[in-house]
């Protein structure tokens, strides 16, 4: 137990702070070299957003309400996508992250079907960036080839950087030191990232809040993204 779970990365999203502005969506594109869509592919449902903001209207005018909810990979402890992959391209790493190995993926897309949150995206073609847009590419994140699945990684490259820095400096990673691009950008500070194994971390405290829920929790997927519902 101890070796496997030195850290258990998790996120808490305060829906009372979230405005649905989608800064997180753009930040994710910038950080993770997401393939560009075009009008045709977008119309076909092939635009890639590792994090998206689901919006629902409830009720009829004038008593109509809008619900916003950022949805990213929930990094489930019991991830339904993992066992179904025939080639181990997706698995749970030692820190509880649900990782995707692009090189190993053969593209059965079974994981995509089995993800109840539909946060997995497929590369239908090799991605193309017209010169010189590629200058913006984050060298810490690999470019995915056509035919493989991809999804939110909790910005594993940032986690690794921070862990390496901490190791070099012979200290522990401090709470709040790691921020995935989405959480980093969030103007309303709705997203908090941290270590569930540290009971004092902000994310642990938020996860224990009375407002805390998890998406489709009833499926037993044990997601590591906690949604704090609106209200006092």
């Amino acid at each position: 137990m101890s070796e496997r779970t030195k850290h258990r990365w998790a996120m808490a999203i305060d829906l009372d702070r979230c405005t649905g502005c989608q800064a997180c969506v753009a930040a994710c594109h910038a950080e993770n070299n997401l393939p560009l869509s075009d009008p045709e592919s977008a119309a076909k449902g092939r635009a890639v957003h590792w994090i998206r903001v689901d919006r629902y209207y409830e009720g009829e005018f004038p008593e109509v309400k809008v619900k916003h909810m950022p949805v990213l990979c929930q990094q489930c402890d019991e991830a339904p996508c993992e066992p179904v992959c025939p080639v181990y391209a997706t698995y749970q790493n030692a820190e509880g992250l649900n990782v995707q190995v692009y090189n190993r993926c053969v593209g059965t897309r079974y994981c995509g079907n089995n993800c109840p949150y539909s946060v997995r995206f497929f590369n239908w073609f090799d991605p193309v960036w017209p010169e010189p847009l590629q200058l913006q590419h984050n060298p810490d994140v690999s470019i995915r080839m056509g035919g493989v699945m991809e999804k939110c990684t909790f910005c594993i490259q940032r986690i690794k950087r921070a862990e390496n820095d901490a190791k070099d400096e012979k200290r522990d990673v401090a709470d709040g030191e790691i921020q995935p691009a989405c959480a980093q950008s969030c103007p309303a500070e709705a997203m908090v990232f941290g270590d569930l194994n540290d009971p004092e971390s902000k994310v642990s405290r938020m996860a224990g809040s009375g407002r805390s829920t998890r998406l489709l929790e009833e499926l037993g997927t044990k997601p590591k993204v906690f949604y704090l519902q609106r209200g006092a």
Partner: peptide
Amino acid sequence: GRLCARGQA
């Protein structure tokens, strides 16, 4: 320390 979607782009 924060930035909106347009700023990111």
